[in-house]
Amino acid sequence: MSFIEFVEGPFYTVAMTIFLLGAAWRVIGIIRIGRKKDISPPKGSAAAGFFKGNLRHFFPRGIFARRTWLHIVGGYGFHLGLFGLMLFAAPHVAFISERITGFGWPTLPRWGFVITAEIAFAGLIVLWVRRISDPVMRLISDWDDHIGTWITFFVMLSGCFAMQESHVFLRATHMLLVNIWLIYFPFGRLMHAFTFFLSRGNTGATYGRKGMNL
């Protein structure tokens, strides 16, 4: 079995399995801790608050955004760029349709891919350099933050290295890093991609129940 066959075959399957089971285990683990039932007479709906909380926190408030606009731009740039690449890069769609879904969807043209990647990279770099050059960030960051950032960065970088699609080795390297990323994901802070809805939702539910207008 060649290296590329290994990283796209059995290794990928194992990594994906760890990713899916690990992420599910962790989310379910958090939910299962449970909350005591609140018996104070409610003023509003907790369920509605759960959704409202999730939506509300997508939109920064002006009074804070004026101070932290660069962080917001970097954050959104990176995340939207990453999702754009992950879901709409032509090689990704080909891989997903072949391996998982059985069908594909429209993909980004090459120039679209390049611009999306540039936005994602710019965002990620801004986020990380902010992490190392702000006293607050230096104080609260831990190794998990840095590892998560750097693995993601290398996955993206190896992907862009392979853009000529002329060397199997480069493609295999990208795939190898993707597998490592998938395995690390459920154990580290990358999991925020799945836990955010719980945290926003829980606060939203508490607030919603109190009839708070946030």
Binding site: M137, T195, L198, S199, N202
Partner: peptide
């Protein structure tokens, strides 16, 4: 869920 979700963004 709070402890799990905090991304150390410093916001």
């Amino acid at each position: 869920s709070f402890f799990e979700a905090c991304v150390h963004c410093g916001e």
